[in-house]
Design a binder for these strands. Structure first.
Ligand code: FES
Ligand code: FES
Lengths: 141, 141
DNA sequence: TAATAGTTGACAATAATAGTAAGGTATGCT
DNA sequence: AGCATACCTTACTATTATTGTCAACTATTA
C-alpha cells in the first residue's frame, strides 16, 4: 500500500512552486535543486501536471511553471491521480476487467471499493492552499 | 496506490475458510481450488497469518486451518497488515528512516500520515464476521 | 507404513518504479 | 542574428517488488 515517489515528489514540488512564485514563473531547475529531485524526473511529472491543467508553462528564458488555478481549488487528489495512474486499490475496477478469478459476485469487492473512496475522499479534502498555509506557519516560527 | 494481490487473496481466503468451516479444519487445497489461487502461494500467506495468530493449523490427514478467534474479533486491517508488510504509504515512517531528502520538517509528512491512519481505520472497522454475513446474504438470494 | 497436509526455503518470471540521457523546440535578450 | 534559457519529448536502463513455482521435509493419522 505504498504511494509512489512520483506522488510524493509532485505534491512537494507543487507546494514549493506555490511558495516561491510571486506571480512570475518558477523554473524546474530551482525546484529541483531546492527539493533535491532529479530535474529530468521532475520534468516528466510536470508534463503530466500540465496535461492535467493544474499548471501552465512559460517557455524561454525567465520561463517556468505557474499554477493554472487558485491554490485553494487544487486538491491533492488531483495531483496524485495525475502522476500516479491507478488510484484504485485493486485491478478489477480498472476498466472492463471482469471480477477477480471467482467469476460472479465477489464479497470483498465492495470493501476495496470503499477503501478507494476513502483514500480519494481524504486526498480531495486537502487543498494546495492548506499545505502552503501550513508551510508558511512553520517558516515563521 | 495498489493493494497487493496477497492482501486480496488473504481476505478472500479467510472469508472462504470461515464460510466452509464447521468446526473442523479446512485444508488449503480446498480453499485454493475454490478460490482459484495457487496452493503454494496460499501456503505462504497462511504461514504469515498463523504467525500473526489469526489462524491455527492442524497437521496430518484431515488437518487444515481454523480461525484462532471469533470471526467478529478479526479485523481486515489485521489480515492485510500481516501479509502486506508496509501499510504506511511512504517510506519515511517505516523505522528510524529520517525524513525525505529535504532534511528538517516536511509539510507533506503529516498528510501521508493522516492518509495511513484513514486506511488503517477503515480496514479496522470491518470484521471478518461482517463479510461472512454479507456472503451468506448473497448466497440465499 | 502410506497418505495427507502443513512447513520451509530457495528460486524464477514478470512488472512496475525510479531514474538517466539526449536531443529538440520555443522564447527573450543583447 | 545568435546565444542562452528553459520547457518538451522520447527512449532507455537499472533496480526493486510482486507474484508465483519448485522441491524437499516434517508431523499426523488411519
Ligand atoms: S471482483 Fe473486484 S475484488 Fe473481486
Ligand atoms: S519526511 Fe515524511 S514525507 Fe517528508
Amino acid at each position: 500500500m505504498r504511494l509512489s515517489t512520483r506522488a510524493q515528489y509532485a505534491v512537494r514540488a507543487m507546494v514549493d512552486l506555490t511558495l516561491n512564485s510571486n506571480g512570475s514563473p518558477v523554473s524546474l531547475r530551482e525546484i529541483a535543486s531546492r527539493e533535491n529531485i532529479s530535474l529530468n524526473y521532475l520534468e516528466q511529472l510536470f508534463h503530466r501536471l500540465k496535461k492535467g491543467a493544474v499548471v501552465l508553462s512559460v517557455r524561454g528564458p525567465g520561463g517556468g511553471y505557474l499554477l493554472a488555478r487558485d491554490s485553494a481549488s487544487i486538491r491533492l487528489g488531483e495531483i496524485v491521480t495525475l502522476v500516479e495512474e491507478p488510484l484504485a486499490p485493486v485491478a478489477c475496477m480498472d476498466e472492463g476487467k471482469k471480477g477477480c478469478t471467482r467469476g460472479d459476485v465477489c464479497v470483498t469487492h465492495m470493501v476495496w471499493q470503499g477503501l478507494g473512496e476513502r483514500i480519494r475522499g481524504f486526498l480531495d479534502s486537502i487543498t494546495l492552499a492548506d499545505l502552503v498555509r501550513e508551510a508558511r506557519g512553520e517558516e515563521k516560527r
